[in-house]
């Protein structure tokens, strides 16, 4: 794990609140609640949690697609959450997004050469047409496509090829931080591994920092250096990938890992523990104290009264009153 001092992005106490219709009026829904984390240069950090855990909202707040209620996100010496106008625009070249649905994220009326050339036109207007063409071609090759693809349109591509184009478009202006929001979820099994390998290779070659949002824990284990586990907008646990998957300290982390299917009937059926009961509650009715306590097999009275703070236990930072009692084996 790279040292913390090399943090490229430092998020402190980020909260995001949505105004939602409720019983004929409005109410506030806190989707992200006091989340802090750092992302080092060249590091891939996984954000995991069930739907409603706030993982996509964190990404949207950092990209300024939704306003943050409070908090700080230091990136390149300034607070991302406060930038406006031309400074925000200038920052966007360092911070790019790879979407879940690759076909929907490509303009159907532009050919691929134009789609890839556009970010260069915006952020590097000094380039000549020929220089731009060279950069587009080099990037196209880096994602495993060729010159013959540049004149085609989005609908002529398969999902996997379209995701390659999505990756090329995000990387062509050489950003430092990439937010990947479920980049593999829409892809077929036989294509997923191609794109997983490609993202990992590019991340290493270019020393990119990746925020990797996924509900697929096995994909996170393959792609990420560290993992942040979210539940109802709060951080449950942050740990290095190996520590988290072999000895996660939060009961929710354990439950997520136990629920993930294993493609091996012997190993899958050797796990005889009961699945976690119930479903994630609405953030409108978040439980008092620890938000996970209503589904937690280890909950005690204290969990209803006192919000557990994130603290170091073993190799994890974990927000659980009983983390020491969560054993080592899974």
């Amino acid at each position: 794990m790279p040292p913390q001092s090399a943090a490229l992005l430092a998020v402190r106490e980020l909260s995001v609140t949505y105004r939602v219709a409720y019983r004929g009026g409005h109410t506030l829904l806190r989707a992200v609640n006091g989340v802090s984390f750092e992302l080092a240069r060249g590091e891939t950090l996984g954000l995991v949690g069930e739907s409603g855990s706030g993982k996509s909202t964190i990404a949207r707040a950092l990209l300024r697609l939704v306003p943050a209620e409070s908090g700080v996100a230091m990136f390149h010496g300034s607070n991302l959450l406060e930038l406006t106008g031309s400074r925000l625009q200038a920052m966007r070249r360092h911070l790019q997004l790879i979407f879940q649905d690759p076909l929907a994220s490509l303009d159907p009326r532009m050919n691929i050469g134009d789609i890839l050339g556009e970010p260069l036109r915006v952020f590097e207007p000094q380039l000549s047409g020929e220089q731009r063409r060279q950069r587009v071609l080099a990037m196209t090759r880096a994602v495993g496509l060729g010159a013959e693809h540049l004149h085609r349109f989005a609908h002529e591509f398969s999902g996997g090829q379209a995701q390659r184009i999505g990756i090329a478009r995000a990387l062509i202006i050489e950003p430092e931080l990439i937010v990947c929001d479920e980049p593999l979820s829409a892809l077929d099994v036989s294509i997923k591994s191609q794109i997983s390998n490609l993202l990992k290779d590019l991340q290493r070659q270019l020393q990119l920092s990746l925020l990797f949002i996924s509900h697929d824990l096995a994909a996170v284990r393959f792609s990420c250096d560290r993992v942040l586990v979210l539940y109802l907008g709060r951080v449950m646990e942050i740990a290095g990938c190996d520590a988290l998957f072999s000895a996660g300290r939060h009961p929710y982390t354990r439950a997520l890992i136990r629920a993930a299917p294993i493609p091996d009937p012997v190993a899958a059926r050797a796990r005889r523990s009961a699945p976690l009961e119930g479903e994630i509650p609405s953030p409108l009715f978040a439980p008092s104290g620890c938000v996970f306590r209503t589904r937690c097999p280890m909950a005690i009275d204290r969990c209803a009264r006192e919000i557990p703070l994130l603290r170091q236990v073993g190799d994890s930072q974990v927000a659980c009153h009983r983390a020491e009692e969560v054993g080592d084996g899974l």
């Binding site: 591994s193 997983s196 284990r221």
Partner: peptide, 18 residues
């Protein structure tokens, strides 16, 4: 079978891919 990452095993450098 070979191209799926596994949650219960250390990660490979690359996944086998079709």
């Amino acid at each position: 079978q070979q191209s799926i990452p596994r949650i219960d095993a250390p990660r490979p450098l690359h996944l086998a891919s079709i």
